[in-house]
Design a binder for these strands. Sequence first.
RNA 1: GCUGAUGUGGUGGAACGGUAUACACGUUGGACUUAAAAUCCAAUGGCCUUAGGCCUUGUGGGUUCGAAUCCCACCAUCAGCACCA
Length: 803
Amino acid sequence: MKKYLPVEVENKWQRTWREQGVNKFSLDSSKEKFYNLVELPYPSGDLHIGHWFAFVPPDVMARFKRMQGLNVFFPNGFDAFGLPAENAAIKRGIHPKDWTMSNIETMTKQFQTMGTMIDWDHQAITCLPEYYKWNQWIFNRMFEKGIAYRGKTLSNWCPKDKTVLANEHVESGKCWRCGTEVIQKEVEQWFLKITAYADQLIWKEPPQADWPASVRDGQNNWIGKKTGINITYNIEGSDETVEVFTTRPDTNFGATFIALAPEHPKALAITTKDNKASVKAYLEKSKKKTELERKENKEKTGIFTGSYAINPLTNFKMPIWIADFVLINFGTGALVGVPGHDKTDFEFAQKFGLEIKRVVVGKDGDEGEIKDIKQVQEQEGKIVNSDFLNGLDIHPATKKIMDYMEEKGYGKREVEYHIHDWSISRQRYWGTPVPIIHCPNCGMIPVPDKDLPVELPYEVDFTPTGEPPLASNKEWLKVKCPKCQGEAKRDAETLDTFFDSSWYFLRYLDPHFDNGPFDPELAKILMPLDIYFGGSEHTLGHTLYARFFTKFFKDLKMVEYDEFAKVRVQHGVVLGPDGNRMSKSRGNVINPDDVVKEYGTDTVRLYLSFMMPYDATAPWSPGAISGIYRFLTRIWQLYDKMTKVELSKEDLTVMNQTIKKVTQEINEVKFNTAVAAIMSWLNHLSRKDKVSKNEYKNLILVLAPFAPHITEELWQRLGEKESIHLQSWPKVDEKYLQTEQVSIVIQVNGKVRDTINLSIDILNNQSDILKKALESTKVQKFLQGKEIKKTIYAKGKVLSLVV
RNA sequence: GCUGAUGUGGUGGAACGGUAUACACGUUGGACUUAAAAUCCAAUGGCCUUAGGCCUUGUGGGUUCGAAUCCCACCAUCAGCACCA
């Protein structure tokens, strides 16, 4: 056979598959369904090696499952809204829509060269009205249920541009655009009440779906449920009280001060006359600090209000301070300082000369003065050792004191979460318009479903001016109130793009479905996802949001399942050949198009499957890929060795063992070892003079998911008419898995001294094996003059002698 | 600091508590070539001159007949979060 020329083979089959519709999905109720999905890509305009790594191994999975007889659904789309399009537009004067759509076109073409079985007929593009119409529809449902609401949050605010700035747009406290000093301001925004689902989103044991522990722990941590108590302290000589949240009331015996966040509403009310001026100055100063600055600057600052709160447990007079290390968003925006048991409190107390008391709880620990932070940390450990907390919400000692305090009326139990409601407002153009109408008479009125979508107008001024770009199109902005028919205005904000990607996999089922965001009948059949591939950067964002949407849809009885993906698999990163992240500035970027040109798609696919575990991060190796090419060439040339030949027992064993191994490994998402098994088999076949047709067929069948083109070519050369990818996965014949001889390791005192070959019929007979072992001169040497005290036999593996 | 993960040849990496280093790259030697490339064959963890033996999975302990694997402590790297009361 002539030389293996990948380009010829690959173009031909990609074309043929398209023409014959080999990868068209159709529902087949006679088969078990398998919804295989990769996170939808952002249309950046160029398909890079990361995309290949994200999509190729999942494609192997999809093809493998199809050959195993499953009804595999593997769609893809584009996450097409978002900032980069708008930035490109601002920079180069291209409209975001044109930029995005042309990128999608390029990338779709590039995707073709990857040779995946993705069925593009189910594609959804999130920036098209037929998609975002349903974002708006979902938003309306959320608005009705109070899940979408208008709330306030502290944000970076540029007073000149009158706009909210993201943290990365604040450069040393100044606005990136106009250089004005940025302040912290409470701004009205749209929120989704994800906290309403916080409890449901916490992963329980055993997990309700097969997601990596790192993801489950990460999400639980992020949700950060804490049971504590809100203690109300009276203030000496005043009717005012101050409320403080704590998860550790057991340390309250050592509480010596109170600290309020500068934004705390009572900050000034609590301040005594004499201190008003200095407190005001402090509040002004901290207002100017950005959140970032406050976090970066670890040096504690604060100011005394002049008031004292009474600790009901000890009657201690606790001075009330205002300090910017206290977060307004957590708890009550105030904390009770226990410097004897908390590092932060200790630093603060030490700096301002506040009293440091230590509590002795239980029998552990001894009283004494505290001199340094290390001592605090050591003692902290003694009171509630976190080991005790395993699987418990609260430590029993803490619970006891909470009960006591509630009984006495000092406070009330409260559950706090680290997770905040999700801010979804963006003062940007390239996103889904919020389907709300602001009417001076009726307030906020959702755009009626029948009037959806609220289309994004093409003509807007999206260069940054301060106000949301949509507000620049006055004609679009002006609207009649659906309720009173009076003059009203549209909401000019757009939705965070994570909204789009929280439910897109449902849209794929039927992207043209007209009666709702998705076809509920199809959802019943095809959802949840059987496997969801993606990046680890989405642990706390996208996948959590998608789970949240799932819970919401379930409440609305739109879906029946609890988790949208049965299995979650997170991939690693392909680094540049120098071991660094690929970047243009480093010049270490591997362009997949170039590599494909040099070696062909199949080689790149196989390389990406083989070179590392799917979840690993490792450098691209230009040398190793040529080894993969060599492997495919050897497969190609092995064709010529094919002839009518009787297979030996060994051949059959190797074949069946390999098929079994490859099957197992792909099922466990271990593509690299699956390929290694095929390579070993090829090594075995290469050593033979003749290869049977059956062997060769099975070889290319197990290779087909990895290298779809070359295997198709070879398959058809064998005279087959139907695509190799529609064939059944080879079956393992169990009777050939056993070899006649088994090698047993003989250990003396735990060290390997010899291996002996035994026929399988005496495998169960320990005394026979021992007899054989004692015949070995190597073993004898180590037994000389010693008495065997003990013999341990692990069947078919090891005979261990202790002397 | 917290949470999670990882640590095995020159490199990427294999190994249900049971022959550590599969598979591949690289390197070295050989065959074929006038020569090179390509291809094929062989060797390839370290140490001891060899038969043979000793050591080796980040470090130190432990459990076990037997540990890369399980337990404890430490060190290092990576990722996410971080003044969370």
